[in-house]
Measured scan of single mutants.
Amino acid sequence: QTVVIGDTTYHLNNPEAAQQIAKELAKKYGLKVVISGNTIKLK
């Protein structure tokens, strides 16, 4: 699972954790979560 935040890319072996982290950050910073395949992007 790949999480992309701005110009930073994180690789996590746990998809659920990756999605949870993405949701928390999106909520905290008012970002939009875009999931395509096994890549999660925060914009």
Results as ranks from 00 to 15, higher is better:
residue 42 L to R: 01
residue 37 G to I: 06
residue 25 L to M: 05
residue 42 L to N: 01
residue 16 E to N: 07
residue 1 Q to E: 05
residue 43 K to A: 12
residue 6 G to T: 02
residue 26 A to N: 03
residue 1 Q to F: 15
residue 28 K to F: 08
residue 29 Y to H: 09
residue 35 I to G: 01
residue 16 E to V: 10
residue 27 K to I: 09
residue 10 Y to T: 02
residue 9 T to W: 11
residue 16 E to Y: 09
residue 20 Q to E: 08
residue 23 K to N: 13
residue 17 A to W: 12
residue 40 I to A: 00
residue 1 Q to H: 15
residue 18 A to C: 12
residue 27 K to Q: 09
residue 9 T to C: 15
residue 1 Q to G: 11
residue 10 Y to L: 14
residue 38 N to P: 02
residue 14 N to S: 14
residue 40 I to N: 01
residue 38 N to E: 04
residue 40 I to W: 01
residue 41 K to W: 15
residue 18 A to K: 01
residue 18 A to P: 03
residue 6 G to Y: 10
residue 11 H to N: 08
residue 10 Y to G: 03
residue 30 G to D: 03
residue 7 D to M: 13
residue 16 E to A: 10
residue 33 V to S: 01
residue 42 L to I: 12
residue 18 A to Q: 02
residue 22 A to F: 10
residue 11 H to L: 08
residue 23 K to D: 10
residue 26 A to Q: 05
residue 39 T to K: 07
residue 11 H to R: 04
residue 39 T to I: 13
residue 12 L to A: 10
residue 1 Q to R: 13
residue 34 V to R: 01
residue 40 I to K: 00
residue 32 K to A: 11
residue 2 T to M: 10
residue 13 N to M: 10
residue 6 G to L: 06
residue 13 N to P: 14
residue 27 K to T: 07
residue 11 H to K: 06
residue 11 H to V: 11
residue 32 K to S: 13
residue 41 K to Y: 15
residue 21 I to Y: 12
residue 37 G to N: 07
residue 31 L to N: 03
residue 15 P to N: 07
residue 24 E to M: 15
residue 6 G to P: 03
residue 30 G to W: 05
residue 2 T to A: 07
residue 18 A to W: 13
residue 9 T to Y: 10
residue 22 A to I: 12
residue 6 G to I: 11
residue 8 T to A: 08
residue 12 L to G: 03
residue 27 K to H: 07
residue 36 S to W: 07
residue 12 L to M: 12
residue 25 L to P: 00
residue 14 N to E: 07
residue 2 T to R: 10
residue 22 A to Y: 04
residue 17 A to T: 11
residue 24 E to H: 14
residue 18 A to R: 02
residue 18 A to I: 12
residue 16 E to P: 01
residue 20 Q to W: 12
residue 38 N to V: 07
residue 1 Q to S: 14
residue 2 T to W: 14
residue 23 K to S: 11
residue 35 I to T: 04
residue 31 L to S: 02
residue 26 A to M: 07
residue 5 I to G: 01
residue 15 P to C: 13
residue 22 A to V: 07
residue 25 L to S: 00
residue 30 G to V: 02
residue 35 I to E: 03
residue 14 N to T: 13
residue 4 V to I: 13
residue 2 T to K: 12
residue 5 I to L: 07
residue 38 N to K: 08
residue 14 N to I: 10
residue 7 D to P: 06
residue 2 T to I: 14
residue 6 G to S: 04
residue 38 N to R: 04
residue 10 Y to V: 12
residue 2 T to D: 08
residue 10 Y to A: 05
residue 39 T to L: 08
residue 12 L to E: 04
residue 30 G to S: 03
residue 23 K to E: 12
residue 13 N to V: 07
residue 42 L to D: 00
residue 13 N to W: 11
residue 19 Q to S: 08
residue 19 Q to R: 11
residue 4 V to C: 14
residue 17 A to F: 10
residue 40 I to G: 01
residue 8 T to V: 13
residue 27 K to E: 12
residue 3 V to W: 05
residue 24 E to W: 15
residue 18 A to S: 03
residue 4 V to E: 05
residue 3 V to L: 14
residue 5 I to E: 02
residue 7 D to E: 12
residue 26 A to Y: 09
residue 41 K to R: 13
residue 28 K to H: 05
residue 25 L to F: 04
residue 1 Q to L: 15
residue 10 Y to N: 05
residue 16 E to R: 10
residue 15 P to V: 11
residue 14 N to H: 07
residue 19 Q to D: 05
residue 24 E to G: 07
residue 27 K to V: 07
residue 10 Y to M: 12
residue 39 T to D: 04
residue 7 D to N: 14
residue 38 N to D: 12
residue 1 Q to N: 12
residue 33 V to R: 00
residue 10 Y to R: 04
residue 42 L to K: 00
residue 11 H to D: 09
residue 7 D to V: 10
residue 13 N to K: 10
residue 21 I to T: 04
residue 33 V to E: 00
residue 19 Q to L: 15
residue 20 Q to S: 08
residue 26 A to R: 05
residue 22 A to C: 05
residue 40 I to R: 00
residue 42 L to S: 01
residue 20 Q to L: 11
residue 10 Y to H: 04
residue 36 S to M: 11
residue 34 V to L: 07
residue 8 T to G: 05
residue 21 I to P: 00
residue 11 H to Q: 07
residue 12 L to I: 13
residue 6 G to W: 13
residue 36 S to D: 12
residue 24 E to P: 00
residue 39 T to M: 09
residue 34 V to Y: 08
residue 34 V to P: 00
residue 34 V to W: 06
residue 22 A to S: 02
residue 1 Q to P: 11
residue 8 T to Y: 15
residue 5 I to H: 03
residue 24 E to V: 13
residue 42 L to C: 08
residue 3 V to D: 01
residue 17 A to P: 01
residue 25 L to D: 00
residue 6 G to F: 13
residue 34 V to M: 06
residue 40 I to D: 00
residue 36 S to T: 11
residue 16 E to D: 08
